[in-house]
Amino acid sequence: MLYIPKITASPVIGFVEFGNVPLSKITPATIKRFLEKFNDKPGARDHIRKTISSAWTWGREYYDEVPRNPCLELKAAPRTSRTRYITDDEYAVVYYIAPSFWKAMMEFAYICRARRIELVRMTHDQILEKGIQLRRAKGSLDEITLWTPRLKKAYQIISELRRETKSDYLFCDTNGTQMKKDTLDSQWQKIMGQAHKDGLLEERFNFHDLKAKGVSDHEGLISGHKTLQAKQVYIRKTQEVKGTK
Score class of each variant (00 low, 15 high):
residue 2 L to S: 02
residue 6 K to N: 06
residue 15 F to G: 00
residue 20 N to H: 11
residue 25 K to W: 09
residue 28 P to D: 02
residue 29 A to E: 08
residue 35 L to T: 05
residue 38 F to M: 12
residue 46 D to W: 01
residue 46 D to L: 11
residue 46 D to T: 07
residue 49 R to E: 03
residue 54 S to D: 06
residue 56 W to Q: 05
residue 57 T to F: 11
residue 57 T to P: 00
residue 60 R to S: 11
residue 64 D to L: 07
residue 66 V to G: 08
residue 72 L to Q: 10
residue 74 L to C: 04
residue 75 K to F: 08
residue 77 A to V: 02
residue 80 T to M: 12
residue 82 R to V: 00
residue 88 D to G: 10
residue 90 E to W: 12
residue 91 Y to C: 07
residue 91 Y to F: 15
residue 92 A to K: 15
residue 102 W to N: 00
residue 105 M to R: 06
residue 106 M to L: 10
residue 108 F to L: 14
residue 110 Y to A: 00
residue 110 Y to S: 05
residue 110 Y to H: 12
residue 115 R to V: 07
residue 116 R to H: 03
residue 117 I to N: 07
residue 120 V to W: 04
residue 122 M to C: 09
residue 122 M to S: 05
residue 133 Q to V: 04
residue 136 R to T: 10
residue 144 I to R: 11
residue 144 I to V: 14
residue 146 L to W: 08
residue 149 P to K: 12
residue 154 A to K: 02
residue 156 Q to Y: 14
residue 158 I to N: 03
residue 158 I to G: 02
residue 158 I to R: 04
residue 160 E to Y: 08
residue 165 T to R: 07
residue 165 T to C: 09
residue 166 K to D: 10
residue 167 S to H: 11
residue 170 L to C: 10
residue 170 L to H: 08
residue 170 L to T: 05
residue 173 D to Q: 09
residue 173 D to V: 00
residue 174 T to V: 10
residue 177 T to C: 08
residue 179 M to K: 07
residue 179 M to R: 13
residue 182 D to H: 11
residue 185 D to K: 12
residue 190 K to D: 04
residue 192 M to G: 04
residue 193 G to P: 04
residue 194 Q to H: 14
residue 198 D to W: 15
residue 202 E to H: 08
residue 204 R to P: 03
residue 205 F to R: 00
residue 205 F to I: 06
residue 207 F to N: 04
residue 212 A to Q: 08
residue 216 S to I: 01
residue 222 I to Y: 14
residue 224 G to L: 02
residue 228 L to Q: 15
residue 229 Q to H: 14
residue 230 A to I: 02
residue 230 A to F: 01
residue 234 Y to K: 07
residue 240 E to D: 11
residue 242 K to R: 15
residue 242 K to S: 13
residue 243 G to D: 10
residue 244 T to C: 03
